[in-house]
């Protein structure tokens, strides 16, 4: 009987723990024929946390990010989103649960700003009035005047404005997780700074779990709660910026930090 009591309390503890954990990645790997792009990744991300993948080009950081919404299908491992294995769910539903921001925006050039932002909500079949309201709300949020920008086309926006719209699009259907693939790397330093600050603001306001890829260490230290340094498809170190800075786990991490000073 006593045995049973222990079991119950363990079960409750596990549930509490899982409520905080947003993403669990187990033994994740990707192979292209004989080439190992990513191997044996294990990590968890908590709700509201920002995780940054960093490393040299070809280290597997983008591949890892794209496996999280199955733009790239893993060849091994599991990805749990709120405890559910997304590899066993409908891929379309999985993607609609995650926002996605791309390096150059990836806005549809034949659609207005409004329609671009409304993409996922309209795919989800939201009523029109709700979509309208949401679009204006998001434009305000990314500091674009709805009256002025709502009906513009992407070609009529600057690079920074396009990226703001791209972020608004990712937040549109209020997904719990946002994936960002080098979102600010194509911008000029001033705009980049503004958008990084915007990003911190949004993340704190909405408690989103954000995973993003960058090759800019400074950006990683600025935005991330946790940093994963990768090399040749393997995780070198996964820790808080503090800990990474103070105690690099491997020789590679040490060199990587030095080279970016």
């Amino acid at each position: 009987m006593g045995c049973r009591g222990t079991y119950v309390s363990l079960e409750i503890g596990r549930i509490n723990n899982e409520r905080k954990i947003m993403i669990t990645v187990k033994n994740l790997g990707k192979m292209y024929d004989d080439f190992v792009a990513v191997s044996d990744l294990n990590f968890t991300v908590e709700r509201g946390e920002t995780l940054c993948f960093i490393g040299t080009s070809g280290c597997g950081k983008t591949t890892t990010l794209k496996m999280l919404n199955r733009l790239i299908e893993p060849t091994s491992g599991e990805i749990l989103l709120s405890g559910e294995n997304i590899l066993q769910q409908n891929v379309i539903d999985v993607r609609r649960e995650m926002g996605y921001v791309m390096q150059r925006g990836g806005l549809f050039p034949h659609w207005t700003v409004k329609r671009n932002i409304a993409l996922v909500p309209s795919l989800l079949g939201w009523p029109n009035a709700k979509i309208q309201q949401r679009v204006d709300e998001l434009l305000d949020l990314v500091n674009l005047d709805p009256g002025e920008y709502r009906d513009r086309f992407p070609a009529q926006l600057s690079g920074g404005q396009r990226q703001r719209v791209g972020i608004a699009r990712a937040f549109a259907a209020d997904p719990p997780v946002i994936l960002m693939d080098e979102p600010f790397s194509a911008l000029d330093p001033v705009t980049r700074k503004q958008l990084q600050e915007k990003c911190i603001e949004l993340k704190e306001k909405f408690e989103k779990t954000i995973l993003f890829v960058t090759h800019d260490l400074e950006e990683a230290f600025l935005l991330a709660d946790k940093i994963m340094i990768m090399d040749k498809g393997k995780m070198e170190q996964y820790d808080t910026p503090e800990n990474i800075k103070n105690s690099p786990a491997t020789e590679f991490v040490e060199k990587f930090l030095q080279s970016h000073e």
């Binding site: 733009l71 993607r95 609609r96 996605y100 791309m102 990836g106 549809f108 795919l123």
Partner: peptide, 19 residues
């Protein structure tokens, strides 16, 4: 890149084609 954006937003292949 646009196709990747469309896939990432959860558009089906048919939606990507027609939209």
């Amino acid at each position: 890149e646009l196709i990747e954006a469309a896939r990432a937003m959860g558009m089906t292949n048919m939606q990507i084609l027609t939209m």
